[in-house]
Design a protein around this nucleic acid. Structure first.
Lengths: 327, 327
DNA sequence: TTGAAAGCGTTACCAC
DNA sequence: GTGGTAACGCTTTCAA
């Protein structure tokens, strides 16, 4: 691999000049410029990222910390981040935290030690102390943190309201809200949205909690429905639990949407494929990831952020787990 | 951030000694050893990966190049690779190539420029020339390449045979094999396996080709089935196309498995969730990724590879798209 | 056993 | 406009 000094020699200038040329910093005469261009071409020279990082204490790597890429929500998010990073010349390191605080800390260590340019984080922890120390650009994604860093989220309350209202409009009279783990703020907000609509109507409502995992959700919902046969509408705070609900209902020999209607939340691919296909409040996952990556890169490149926080509106997608007509 | 020379000063030894201590290379006296340990503790010192990379021309980063993390096959693979990397102290950069040769090349550039320790690659291109130049550790994953680098794959032929035989045993008499894009070697092998079984039986068989994407697969299969109403068994070379087949059959108002039985290939999560749930030849995706990462790390650390190529047997999972009893 | 110093490939300051 | 050179933080060779 040729180095900057090879280029300098060939172009008959100093390394300093080549460096200035490369970074567009300081003056470089016309003739030098041409000579350097030619030399770079000829040698097929590419600056060493590593050396550059050592010198500037900054790399072109972005760290992406998510709970688990296997969770169907994250591949698309990761893809959006990677695409955007690619577009701006960055590269992304993928970290699966498993929502484990220790692992998350470890990754922070590792990433900062690599002089990453910035970090995008989907975390349930609110490590005010951990983060403040390192003043590296960050953005929180999907799950708002209490601490004050730029954040990209879906408008969870709005989405939940949309879903709940829809269920009511479709004639549901006894609603069950399946919330997610209470540590997850977005889940709390969705439940809040549910409640806000409910309190405007004189209808029966129930709230339970379940992990975002369709197998567990299925058994929890199965039990609950067995003991509460009046329920005829379910708002699940994630598509995963909505799918669990679907299976639970089938097991009870009831049918969807005739006996019970379901609206999920997230808009993952799987929702299209189950039958009946899932009516859901779809987050614009790609846009979420893209916005986060752009905000991060803006920070990295020292551009001012117009908004310190972006909130993307979800969209209700009507499919087959809700009734076509109002009953 | 403290540096090695801070440690050296505090421990009253030279940087060279600290370095030797850190890397377990060369002698370090007992007293120095203790002093260094203490100094490291006190300063909370962590060696700079970047500086180390510049010096050794090798980092602790592994590059993972896959077509698209959104493709349901890859998240689990990526997770396995990341887990294994984590366990051994490596970190992974995620690259989505979109099966685009240019993009793939670009990533190779970028990765080698970062002195990555090694690369795991799932590619349909056989860039003999591109690869040979860079003699960095590599392993090919899932899709065998023609060139001679260590490879981890599923036993595709065996899996296809399993599926085909199963369909025949369940009474299918006119089989359709839905192959994937012909550039993908694993898909070719699956079709081969299908043919090997077929030729032993006096039954009707058809082979068509479809991208690994359930929407396109659905329309292709729909058309084909319409013109070939005798078909009563489908072996799809991917779960995605199997799901497409399922939808196509429903659209034709036929039922699964009564009219047509289906067996997929891959074992992605979605297969569990469709209804009827998908009988499939499941690859052990996690094991695939883990094996690849281990092989790579072995190479990186200069340990001899026992096998230059690992082939993992898939397993038939019987679910609901095939009949319970032989007809 | 240990330390001095060169080298890894850049950047950036300062003098010319 | 340009070049010399220290500095980034580490490894490694060589001599002591």
């Amino acid at each position: 691999m040729p180095t900057i000094s090879d280029v300098a020699k060939l172009a008959k200038v100093s390394v300093a000049t080549v460096s200035r040329f490369l970074n567009d910093s300081g003056y470089v005469g016309k003739k030098s410029r041409e000579a350097i261009k030619k030399a770079i071409q000829e040698l097929d020279y590419v600056p060493s990222e590593v050396a550059r990082s050592l010198s500037t204490k900054q790399s072109d790597i972005i760290g992406l910390i998510i709970p688990d890429i296997k969770n169907p929500f994250f591949p698309e998010l990761a893809r959006a981040v990677e695409d955007t990073a690619f577009e701006y010349g960055y590269t992304v390191i993928l970290c699966n935290s498993d929502e484990n605080e220790l692992k998350e800390k470890h990754y922070f260590q590792t990433l900062t030690n690599k002089y990453v340019a910035g970090i995008i984080l989907t975390s349930i922890f609110d490590q005010g102390t951990n983060f403040k120390k390192l003043k590296i650009p960050m953005v929180a994604l999907d799950r708002p943190l209490e601490i004050n860093i730029p954040t990209v989220t879906t408008n969870n309350i709005e989405g939940a309201k949309l879903a709940t209202q829809f269920l009511i409009d479709k004639g549901a009279t006894s609603l069950l809200c399946v919330g997610g783990p209470k540590e997850i703020r977005s889940s709390k907000l969705r439940v809040e949205g549910f409640q806000e609509i409910i309190k405007e109507y004189p209808i029966d409502s129930h709230i339970i909690e379940s992990p975002y995992d369709f197998e567990t959700a299925e058994t929890i919902i199965f039990d609950y429905l067995k003991h509460n046969p009046t329920i005829d509408g379910i708002f699940a705070c994630s598509d995963a639990s909505a799918i669990g609900a679907l299976k639970a209902i089938h097991k009870l020999n009831l049918s969807v949407p005739e006996d019970i209607q379901i609206v999920g939340f997230d808009g993952i691919q799987m929702g299209k494929v189950v039958s009946p296909s899932l009516t859901t409040v779809a987050q614009n996952i790609y846009q979420l990831g893209q916005a986060a990556a752009k905000m991060l890169i803006h920070q990295i490149e020292g551009k001012p952020l117009e908004n310190t926080s972006v909130c993307i509106n979800p969209k209700l997608i009507e499919r087959e787990t809700t009734r076509k007509e109002r009953t």
